[in-house]
Simulated assay, not measured.
Amino acid sequence: MRYLKLLALLPLGFALGGCDFVVLTPAGDVAAQQRDLVVIATVLMLLIVVPVMVATALIAWRYRQSNTTARYTPDWDHSTQLELLIWAAPLLIIICLGAVTWMGTHLLDPYRTLGRIAADRPTNPDLKPLEVDVVALDWKWLFIYPEYGVASVNELAAPVNRPLDFKITASSVMNSFYIPALAGQIYAMPGMQTRLHAVINAPGNYRGFSANYSGAGFSHMHFTFQALADGDFDQWIAKAKSAGASRLGRQEYLALERPSENEPVRFYTPVDEELFPAILNMCVETGKMCTSEMMAIDAKGGMGLAGIGNTLPLTYDKLAARGAVFGLEPSYVAGGVCLPGDQVGRMSDASTIVPAPVDGTPLRGYGLARPGSARKSSTSFLFGRSSKSDS
């Protein structure tokens, strides 16, 4: 029977043999530091977990019912030494975990520029980081290299031992940009920009994907990250420029943005320099106000009635404007500037607005008599019947 149990565990061993332990053996310095943080935290917690599990098994064995030689102390209720051990050990572990977590949180902040390339190699202040603009689409990845004027779909390349500066956003729903060999996952959200500073230290092809469910094509939303030597990266840039099918401007982006799955790798060149800011501010479409402009207007107190002519022609629902399946027809709302009466037709000229006449009739609530009149019984209004007035 014992051998049958061991035999039943063999399939589990074969299944674990196919696991990729890239998180524990990363190729980037940032990911290696994160790995070390996970290992240190795990070991510190095991210092408490393992002794507790061993003590539980020993106590259960020593004081089992069949052991009649065990010491019987029914009146025992306190031990100062045991209390110190129980409370001091976890407290020390928590202090160590807090210190390690605090330092790791600040040193591994994805928005923080790198201070080193590797454990024994500081960054070169004269070496400019490679900037990559990342856009999570449905369901593919767009990478823009503003320094070289090229863009790629579902393929990312970077030179080894050069700091990388990622600016990340999304087109519609939240995704998560994750290359386990490079660094931890960073969320990609529409209308927002997140950052990631990282470095890759070993050449090779690594897997990147979205770690946040984003719809039907989520399982196909992965890409290849190529870590290349400097000369090989220059060749990759040259290949991207020569293989660029077309220019990537606003109209080309709107066509690329439409939901699709299993998109092949392709390149664009040149790339509109204002495209990524327009994607970030959700104003790729012509005639749509950017969120940065909206925030600037709101910071100054709004536009008032004089700005109605500027806001009414704008299309705020981009999905409806692009003919989405569940979208509505483009519509405009001016509810914040309506006045009593038919005044909407005269909004174009603020000087022609005529105030509505004021009704001098006193306000009456349900169950309340007019001011100065006799008060009625509350039960009459509760049951909808009239009653005699109270004096």
Rank of each mutant, 00 (worst) to 15 (best):
L7C: 08
G13V: 13
D20P: 00
Q34A: 14
V38F: 09
M45Y: 03
P51C: 01
T56H: 15
A57G: 14
Y63R: 12
Q65R: 14
D77K: 03
D77N: 04
S79P: 00
I86D: 09
A88H: 06
L92S: 03
A99L: 08
A99R: 06
G104E: 06
T105H: 15
D109G: 01
L114G: 10
A118C: 11
A119W: 02
L127Y: 08
D133T: 01
D138Q: 14
L156Y: 10
A157M: 13
A158V: 10
P159Y: 03
N161G: 02
N161P: 01
V173M: 00
F177V: 08
Y178A: 01
P190R: 13
H197C: 10
A198E: 09
A198G: 09
V199F: 08
G204H: 09
F209K: 15
F209V: 12
S210V: 00
Y213C: 14
H220L: 01
F233R: 15
Q235Y: 02
K241T: 05
S242I: 06
S246A: 11
E252W: 01
A255I: 05
R258D: 00
P259E: 00
N262Y: 03
P264V: 13
E273R: 15
M303P: 02
L314S: 07
G327I: 13
S331T: 14
V333N: 13
V333L: 11
V337A: 08
T352F: 07
I353Y: 04
V354W: 03
S378D: 03
F383T: 03
S387Y: 04
K388C: 00
